[in-house]
């Protein structure tokens, strides 16, 4: 396969995400910019200008009309995708955001946004839910503070809506996972054994029944998204930055690499910057695709599972369309 390289960011990528139809790809980077691309020919449709710091997370809504991004400038912004205009800003007004938002996520209906807020400014870490139909200045419709002392001295860094939008799952910087009731934001279950280090990425399977987490502790783990029952473990030799479940086959792809600050101390030829393919059930690595010059920070499967994108520390997004070699590879038994 011949990958298409998208170079719209001057610094490392933080997250990439397809829209539901799979024709657009959104990317965020540490260089304050948010870009959107036509994925079939790699054409850049536009950039969303406004963030004053690194952008950590991005999510388009179901209909591809609105986009939410969260950044290190202590704002979460809602954008109109067609025009690229910023339609509202969630900042520190009315009990809003006083820290950076490390991840943002639209609910399936596209009306609610969830994001975690950290403890950087000596605030109490919290989960925030906003209704974007109301003016952002009204503050969150729901907010659950997560006192650090009560939760093993950790703060949530990644959040997403669980199965059927009934729950919110949060991954913490010490590797713990929590599942919350989405209506009242009560804690339903916590898993303190899931990971030893920070949760770098969480993604759901296409039918939203399975959750995959990627952690700095060099593993990616598969959970039942309803009750956080641990199912499978995928082991890597390097910290895992992103993991995804194929919508087409029983495959899992993980990507990562040495921390940027550790790269110079290791052999550059042995960077392990490839995307690794595992069998979902057998936990067996069966293949890999190389190409990046830095650790992969974010992975996203096309909704049809016939192609995928990876965004890396080197500032490039690589669009891979699978060739016959991979598509013909079938090791299922049923």
């Amino acid at each position: 396969m011949k990958p298409t390289l998208l170079q719209g960011h001057e610094r490392s990528l933080t997250q990439i995400k397809y829209n539901r139809d799979g024709d657009l790809l959104f990317s965020t980077s540490k260089d304050k910019s948010v870009s959107v691309w036509f994925i079939d020919n790699g054409e850049r449709l536009g950039t969303f200008e406004g963030h004053q710091g690194s952008v950590w997370g991005v999510d388009p809504n179901w209909e591809t009309t609105r986009l939410v991004t969260g950044g290190a400038d202590f704002t979460v912004r809602i954008w109109d995708i067609e025009t690229g205009k910023n339609v509202s800003i969630i900042d520190d007004k009315n009990g809003g955001l006083t820290t950076s938002a490390k991840s943002v996520k639209f609910s399936y209906c596209g009306n609610l946004v969830v994001f975690p807020s950290g403890a950087e400014m000596r605030t109490t870490p919290a989960l925030n839910v906003y209704d974007i139909r109301q003016p952002a200045t009204q503050g969150p419709i729901k907010r659950q503070e997560v006192p650090k002392s009560d939760y093993q001295d950790s703060t949530p860094v990644k959040t997403l809506w669980g199965y059927n939008d009934e729950t919110i799952i949060s991954g913490n910087d010490n590797g713990n996972l929590y599942i919350w009731d989405a209506r009242g934001l009560q804690l339903l279950h916590k898993d303190t054994t899931s990971h030893d280090k920070i949760v770098n990425d969480m993604q759901l399977s296409k039918d939203k029944t399975m959750l995959i987490t990627a952690s700095k502790d060099k593993t990616a783990k598969l959970f039942d998204s309803v009750d956080l029952n641990p199912l499978k473990v995928y082991k890597s030799q390097v910290p895992v930055n992103s993991a995804m479940i194929s919508p087409r086959a029983n495959h899992v792809v993980i990507g990562g690499g040495q921390d940027a600050k550790d790269v110079t101390t290791t052999d550059s030829r042995d960077g392990k910057f490839e995307a690794k393919f595992f069998h979902l059930l057998m936990e067996q690595e069966f293949g890999s695709i190389k190409g990046h010059f830095g650790p992969i920070n974010s992975l996203a499967f096309h909704p049809d599972g016939m192609s995928y994108c990876s965004g890396a520390e080197d500032g490039y997004i690589r669009v891979h369309k699978f060739d016959r070699d991979y598509l013909a590879y079938n090791d299922d038994v049923f």
Binding site: M1, K2, P3, T4, L5, L6, Q7, G8, N41, G42, E43, R44, E274, F277, E285, F286, G287, S288, I289, K290, G291, R318, H320, F322, D323, D325, Y326, Y329
Partner: peptide
């Protein structure tokens, strides 16, 4: 259409099967 500054075509890569 795609712009040369932002969109490039990479070298052929193969999936390495283990």
């Amino acid at each position: 259409g795609p712009q040369e500054a932002t969109t490039m075509y990479g070298e052929e890569v193969m999936m390495r099967f283990i």
